[in-house]
Simulated assay, not measured.
Amino acid sequence: MLKHIFLVVFLWLSSSFVYSQNYSVQIATDTNAITIGEQIHITLTYTVSPHSQYQLPVYGEELIPHIVQCKLPDIDTLTIDKDSFQISYTYCVTSFNPGEYSFQLGPILYNLKDTIWTPTIRISVRAEDVDVQADIRDVPPIRQSKYSWFEQNKTWIVWIVASIIFLIVAAGVWWYIQKHKQKPVLIQAAELELPHIRALRLLAEINEKQLCQKNLYKQYYSEISDVLREYFEARLHIPLFERTTDEIIRDVSRTGDLQVAVIQNLQILLHEADLVKFAKYIPSIQQSEIHGGLAVFCVKESSKTEQGEGI
């Protein structure tokens, strides 16, 4: 019985010893001497069993006084085999105080009972050497910009050119509109021609052409009928173009503004014009002159009502 108890105690002690030895800590630096402000990397490599419990140290801005962390440490893991893996912490540090520094990283808590410290790290921080005997040099001249004036002001130039083009186009559009804009016709009141004055003038011009003497009867009667249509349209304010003779006589009679003699002579003249224009009727020169006189009569007589006296 005592032999069995001794065997159990021996196995427990052996197991604890192996388990406690199933880790290793390594430390490495890329250099041990730096100048003020220069950075150095410290790599902590911790090899443990995947079944173990551990807690690595946590630092603030400084690892120790005057050894400052530049950033948070980089963490990397690597599985070696089924019984072990590595954890690497890389610290980037610097110092702004010259001197010799020796320190350890830790403590690392292993399986909640073992406290581990890294081997000692030694860093030498030196100040920049200043040669007080060196000649004082002038301040170097201002360097010229590698960009040309156009490249430096390209944005402004583009905006200015675009604005000029816009103004030119706008001016061209304005000029085109003004050039093709229909100008209002200004007519003096004294230059306005009354309808009956215009009609009598046009009838006189037709008579001076002597169209009947040239056998241009159709043109003669067409021009006379057009003058009468224009005159009575302006006189009575009713549309008379594109109307037949019967429609014209009907419309002017309904106004009640014309004398019966004017309506009768107008009807005779328009029917005679229809015969010449459409039936190829050729009256004598004397008849044509009489019809021209009837046109003048219709204008003069109808204008008496408007003017209050004859012409």
Rank of each mutant, 00 (worst) to 15 (best):
residue 225 S to R: 03
residue 254 R to P: 03
residue 71 K to I: 08
residue 84 S to C: 06
residue 279 A to F: 02
residue 96 F to E: 12
residue 280 K to Q: 13
residue 145 S to N: 11
residue 203 L to F: 05
residue 296 V to W: 06
residue 249 I to L: 11
residue 143 R to F: 10
residue 84 S to I: 05
residue 41 H to S: 11
residue 128 E to G: 05
residue 192 L to W: 09
residue 126 R to S: 14
residue 220 Y to Q: 14
residue 286 Q to R: 13
residue 229 R to Q: 13
residue 56 L to S: 03
residue 144 Q to R: 11
residue 302 S to P: 08
residue 271 H to G: 06
residue 275 L to Y: 12
residue 218 K to F: 08
residue 289 E to Y: 11
residue 18 V to G: 02
residue 247 E to M: 11
residue 5 I to V: 10
residue 232 F to K: 00
residue 272 E to W: 03
residue 117 W to P: 06
residue 174 W to S: 11
residue 19 Y to C: 01
residue 201 R to D: 13
residue 181 K to R: 15
residue 69 Q to R: 07
residue 22 N to Y: 02
residue 199 A to Y: 01
residue 164 I to S: 04
residue 92 C to F: 08
residue 310 G to N: 11
residue 281 Y to G: 04
residue 62 E to L: 03
residue 122 R to S: 14
residue 136 I to W: 05
residue 141 P to H: 06
residue 10 F to L: 15
residue 181 K to P: 06
residue 266 L to I: 03
residue 107 P to M: 07
residue 240 L to M: 08
residue 4 H to A: 13
residue 171 A to L: 12
residue 125 V to P: 00
residue 309 E to T: 09
residue 249 I to T: 05
residue 298 C to E: 02
residue 170 A to Q: 04
residue 101 Y to A: 00
residue 134 A to W: 04
residue 188 Q to S: 12
residue 161 V to H: 02
residue 149 W to F: 14
residue 75 I to Y: 04
residue 39 Q to T: 10
residue 145 S to G: 02
residue 105 L to K: 00
residue 226 D to F: 09
residue 124 S to H: 12
residue 114 D to F: 10
residue 133 Q to V: 06
residue 66 H to C: 07
residue 208 E to I: 06
residue 301 E to F: 05
residue 95 S to G: 04
residue 212 C to N: 10
residue 289 E to Q: 15
residue 176 Y to T: 04
residue 276 V to D: 01
residue 292 G to V: 02
residue 112 L to V: 10
residue 9 V to K: 04
residue 213 Q to W: 08
residue 76 D to W: 08
residue 1 M to T: 08
residue 91 Y to I: 01
residue 221 Y to D: 05
residue 38 E to W: 00
residue 148 S to V: 00
residue 295 A to Y: 00
residue 47 T to Y: 01
residue 17 F to P: 01
residue 155 T to P: 02
residue 46 Y to C: 01
residue 287 Q to T: 11
residue 186 L to M: 12
residue 62 E to R: 03
residue 145 S to E: 11
residue 141 P to L: 10
residue 259 Q to H: 11
residue 238 I to L: 12
residue 104 Q to G: 07
residue 278 F to N: 11
residue 117 W to K: 05
residue 123 I to E: 01
residue 181 K to C: 07
residue 210 Q to N: 14
residue 173 V to S: 09
residue 5 I to K: 14
residue 241 F to W: 13
residue 142 I to G: 06
residue 203 L to Q: 04
residue 174 W to R: 05
residue 128 E to Y: 12
residue 59 Y to C: 01
residue 235 R to T: 05
residue 48 V to K: 07
residue 128 E to Q: 12
residue 241 F to A: 09
residue 253 S to F: 06
residue 79 T to Q: 13
residue 10 F to I: 06
residue 112 L to R: 15
residue 81 D to M: 05
residue 245 T to Y: 07
residue 139 V to H: 07
residue 189 A to N: 13
residue 62 E to K: 06
residue 288 S to M: 06
residue 236 L to H: 08
residue 264 Q to E: 14
residue 153 N to E: 10
residue 47 T to D: 04
residue 4 H to F: 10
residue 307 Q to S: 10
residue 63 L to W: 01
residue 296 V to N: 12
residue 130 V to H: 03
residue 274 D to M: 01
residue 97 N to P: 05
residue 233 E to C: 08
residue 84 S to Y: 06
residue 206 I to P: 05
residue 160 I to E: 09
